[in-house]
Design a protein around this nucleic acid. Structure first.
Length: 492
RNA sequence: CGGGAGGUAGUUCAGCUCGGUAGAAUACUUGGUUUGGGACCAAGGGGUCGCAGGUUCGAAUCCUGUCCUCCCGACCA
């Protein structure tokens, strides 16, 4: 069959691509580095977005929308941020096309229509937003300003991968302004907690919260908090970041407020974001060689019902029972689909929905119904059971909870067993090569050692965990003294 | 951006070495039989061979350019 999926063992990258393409999450496009998000992938994003949006609003944020284009002069105002993104910016230089006089039916850029000032397509929106905030903030009474936007951004990546790294992607970016440093730091931490809860409770994907080292920090930030997830191939993936921006942007864009003593001060800032990359993380954290495995809390389709029957009479009997069940499930807030399409046979449907990661499948077979039973199959363990029709809706709702929890527990066990403490360089290299995952090791805190480790092994410091245990030790590379362990890994 | 591979029917691919009417499987349509793990029979429709040039009587095939994808590398909030 054409739908076969490359196994993880054969080729992990190809397995991932197969899941995305054959699971109908996305498609390649005619634009280099850009993908089409297909309805199933977009439904997943919508579910993520809805949950996150509510969390943002529950924590006092409101949504707004800022322009896609950023005048170059604004973009370059915060130097470190501008430098950090300069190499991957798409730039608009002209505003008009015209007919090619030498090539009928073709268009060329009109050289007469050159922009006075180039427009940068936003790789992130700090510049345009802080330029705007300047006019919105005057007094401490205007603070805090807590705004989020759902948007697309463009980063001209040299090498792209579906969902994980594409030239254009969808995300949300929160940008907040505060009167005090403490409040801004509290906000930064609060949002990384929001992300961590989202990842663990909804995506069933355990994460480690931590702080980035200086070299991995967001350009223009004082501190970058991160949630780091672990994929099944032992590579880490940065799933969300929250930045304490200090007063860097306030100074660059001259955003001040007068305090209660009528003294002007620069405001304190944060920004935080997660993107469609989360979909890639979700896929790689849970799925298997038969296809996607989606957590019930985010799955666009949580339950699929497949009938098996001979003749109209049996079909009518099944329809009646299914309709009653679906009404109950929907009342319980369950997203359910009844696939009584006659073009495909049950076996085909089983494989298809397994590939698409539907958490629970119910088979209504005429034979079982005579005994008041249906077959219930769960995607995560592929376990199948005959279950009584009595109280079936409750059984399914409980089962979905169980699938969700089991997915988290399984991923958590994997993560826990792949955090390895090492105390020597030999061990470091050995664990990295043979086992993968996070390596907990002492680091002397210098960018030089960090860089050398990266050069030698491709492993980077993923984070310094929050509430990290303080212990004396020596750097795994340099042998210099160290106060705490940090987490290294090869990463996406 | 460097190295390698690839682009032919909706999909997966053969055909290219050695130029001569565009192929298979599957999917699709119609009819029938089926239905407990990717059903079967019969008939039918579908491709200017990624795009643009060139060589040639003739190009999917040879040459040049270009676009897109994958893998490895460099780069990467």
């Amino acid at each position: 069959m054409s739908k076969e999926i490359t196994s993880r063992a054969d080729d992990y990258s190809q397995w991932y691509n197969d899941l995305i393409i054959k699971g109908q999450l996305a498609d390649y496009s005619a634009v280099r580095g850009c993908m089409v998000i297909k309805p199933l992938g977009y439904a997943l994003w919508e579910n993520m977005r809805d949950v996150l949006d509510k969390k943002f609003k529950d924590t006092g944020h409101v949504n707004a929308y800022f322009p896609l284009f950023v005048p170059k002069s604004l973009f370059e105002a915060e130097e470190k941020n501008a430098e950090g993104f300069a190499k991957e910016c798409a730039v608009v230089t002209h505003y008009r096309l015209k007919n090619d006089p030498n090539n009928k039916g073709k268009l060329i850029v009109d050289p007469e229509a050159k922009l006075e000032e180039e427009l940068v397509v936003r790789p992130t929106s700090e510049a345009i937003i802080w330029n705007t905030y300047k006019t919105w903030i005057q007094s401490y009474r205007d603070l805090p300003l807590l705004i989020n936007q759902w948007a697309n951004v463009v980063r001209w990546e040299m090498r792209t991968r579906l969902f994980l790294r594409t030239a254009e992607f969808l995300w949300q970016e929160g940008h907040t302004a505060h009167a005090t440093k403490e409040e801004a730091i509290t906000e930064t931490k609060q949002m990384i907690d929001v992300y961590a809860h989202f990842a663990e409770y909804y995506m069933a994907m355990p994460v480690i919260r931590g702080v980035k080292s200086a070299s991995e920090r967001f350009a223009g930030a004082e501190d970058t908090y991160t949630i780091e997830a672990l994929m099944q191939d032992g590579k880490a993936l940065q799933a969300g970041t929250s930045h304490f921006l200090g007063q860097n942007f306030a100074k660059a864009f001259d955003v001040t407020f007068v305090n209660k003593e009528n003294k002007p001060e620069h405001v304190w800032a944060t920004s935080w974001g997660v993107s469609t990359r989360l979909i890639g993380a979700l896929v790689m954290a849970h799925s298997d060689d038969d296809g996607l495995i989606l957590p019930p809390r985010l799955a666009p389709m949580q339950v699929v019902i497949v009938p098996i029957y001979k003749g109209d009479e049996q079909k009518a009997m099944i329809d009646e029972k299914v309709n009653a069940l679906m009404a109950q499930l929907r009342q319980g807030g369950i997203r359910v689909k009844y696939d009584d399409n006659d073009n495909t046979r049950p076996g085909w449907k089983f494989a298809e929905y397994e590939m698409k990661g539907v958490p629970v499948r119910i088979t209504f077979g005429a034979r079982d119904l005579e005994n008041n039973l249906v077959e219930v199959a769960r995607r995560d363990t592929k376990e199948k059971n005959s279950v009584s029709l009595d109280g079936l809706a409750e059984t399914i709702i409980t089962l979905l909870e169980d699938v969700q929890n089991n997915m988290f527990n399984k991923a958590k066990a994997y993560q826990q067993s792949h955090i390895t403490e090492v105390n020597s360089w030999e061990e470091f290299e050995k664990v990295l090569e043979e086992k993968g995952g996070f390596i907990s090791a002492h680091w002397d805190g210098t960018p030089e050692s960090e860089e050398e480790i990266k050069q030698k092994t491709k492993a980077t410091i993923r984070c310094i965990p929050i509430d990290n245990k303080q212990e004396d030790g020596v750097c795994v590379l340099s042998g210099k003294p160290s106060k705490e362990r940090v987490l290294f890994a090869r990463a996406y």
